[in-house]
Design a protein around this nucleic acid. Structure first.
Length: 430
RNA sequence: UCCCCGAUAGCUCAGCGGUAGAGCAGCUGGCUGUUAACCAGCUUGUCCUAGGUUCGAAUCCUAGUCGGGGAGCCA
């Protein structure tokens, strides 16, 4: 007897196989039962005709409840009437554990209810598709950097100080001292880039922001490349190429998942390089041309980002922001010291910022001045300033938010569905 | 931190001053192939909590709790 997964059924037509999984749904009449079995790799219709199986088997099929775990043995039949093109003509059914009163029925539920049952909601079709796409995106990201000779360097989760500010950090006890959960691996990647040239880290980051929006999590994943000797233009090229390689991978490998999510493919197929690149000044002009009030020097809010992105069919890169609204480590524009050599990539369809990055300041005295201006404790950045004392070179990098990228690819409006167990302002369970 | 909206059956909701309803789920029966199958019947409530108004409150008022959406900030 061959045990196989539903995704492999096409290789076993007319053979008898055993499938192991959970009952997704059931339909039936007096003489025939249709069991929808899911096993993680797909969903398969298993048919039990009253004349084709013994009485005990038919009766046990009639009694099966949603999400009961079971193994089903039968002959694989190619049948266009069945979803997926194959079905099983049952010869035997073995129940592993009977599921009673499964909370998530094949009908409508509120988001709050589903979030409370996240551990079970993961089994539902769209959630299953979303997590598979997330997995494929992670692989696409790793492949992208690995194929370009980047070295994976893991950044610490416990950190002694803030990267950008202290109000958004989670504080934890660290023996007799305090530590914070990392909000970015960037500073560590700058150190690693001076050792390996091209590096990236990929892991969870934490922000204690009291944000309650569809784009925010308190724990989210970020991939952060950092490249020695690179300038702003090179990391804009890198971000563009990364996003393009992610889209290409998803479109070629995740067709079934995109279909389960009812994703409109046209906006994804439109994501081809080159992406438009505009300066902050040009972005402000676009806002003004649309009649939106905006004062030069401020940062774009979510509605501003959407208005700018609606101007283009592709992701748009906005570069050279006013230095005053950007982090202390940004290099200033030699042609206009009011500006910083940073950039954001704004995704279309209201997704918003998926990449933030730019060229880092390599001058020791400039950084010391900036740390003072931002009222940051210089002693906390002593090790970081060493990177400017011992062979400082121009370098640049960025961070790409994984959950926003998954939401973008999936067409999912809220990032909480793009991570298996989301951590939000007021939700830490399950 | 601020601004909106909501809380009624296991789930999704209707009822909005006269004492509790529908669909789905569950249970029983029917149906030769169904595609969130369908048809008939049955069961299920501290109407979020605490005060108040009223002859009478799920319904009106106040406070609180929880949930949803949005803003700021950011990936």
């Amino acid at each position: 007897m061959t045990t196989c997964r539903i995704e492999e059924l096409s290789q076993h037509v007319d053979q008898e196989v055993t499938l192991r999984g959970w009952l997704y749904n059931k339909r039936g009449s007096k003489n025939v039962q249709f069991l929808m079995l899911r096993d993680g790799s797909g969903i398969c219709q298993c048919v039990a005709g009253k004349k084709d199986v013994d009485e005990a088997t038919f009766e046990s099929c009639q009694k099966l409840t949603q999400e009961t775990s079971l193994s089903i043995t039968g002959r694989v039949n190619a049948d266009a009437r069945s979803v997926g093109g194959h079905e099983i003509h049952i010869t035997g059914v073995e129940v592993l554990q009977t599921s009673e009163d499964y909370p998530i029925t094949p009908k409508e539920h509120s988001t709050g209810f589903l979030m409370g049952h996240r551990h079970l909601w993961l089994r539902s079709k769209k959630q299953h598709a979303t997590i598979r796409i997330r997995s494929r995106i992670v692989k696409a990201i790793r492949d992208f950097f690995d194929h370009r000779q980047f070295i994976l360097v893991d950044a610490p989760i416990f950190t002694p100080a803030a990267c950008e500010g202290t109000t958004t950090l989670f504080e934890v006890d660290y023996f007799d001292d305090k530590a914070y959960l990392t909000q970015s691996g960037q500073l560590y990647m700058e150190a690693a880039a001076m050792a390996h040239g091209k590096v990236y880290c990929f892991g969870p980051t934490f922000r204690a922001e009291k944000s309650k929006t569809r784009r925010h999590l308190t724990e989210f994943w970020m991939v952060e490349p950092e490249v020695a000797f690179a300038d702003l233009n090179e990391v804009m090229d890198l971000g563009e190429a990364l996003v393009h390689s992610i889209v290409t991978a998803i479109l070629s490998d995740c067709q079934a998942e995109l279909e389960a999510l009812e994703r409109d493919l046209a906006p994804l197929e439109a994501i081809t390089p080159p992406f438009p690149r505009i300066s902050y000044d040009e972005a402000v002009q676009i806002l003004h041309s649309k009649g939106i009030e905006f004062e030069w020097g401020g940062d774009f809010g979510a509605p501003d980002e959407t208005a700018i992105s609606e101007h283009f069919a592709k992701p748009v890169l906005i570069h050279r922001f006013p230095a005053q609204i950007k982090a202390f480590y940004m290099k200033e524009d030699p042609e206009d010291p009011r500006l910083a050599l940073g950039y954001d990539m704004i995704a279309p369809e209201g997704v918003g910022e998926v990449i933030g990055g730019g060229q880092r300041a390599e001058s020791l005295s400039f950084l010391q001045k900036k740390i003072a201006e931002h009222h940051l404790p210089e002693e906390a950045f002593d090790w970081y300033l060493d990177l400017r004392r011992y062979g400082s070179v121009p370098h640049a990098g960025f961070g790409l938010g994984l959950e926003r990228t998954v939401a973008w690819m999936c067409g999912t409006p809220h990032v909480r569905e793009t991570i298996p167990f989301p951590r939000l302002l007021d939700r830490i369970r399950p």
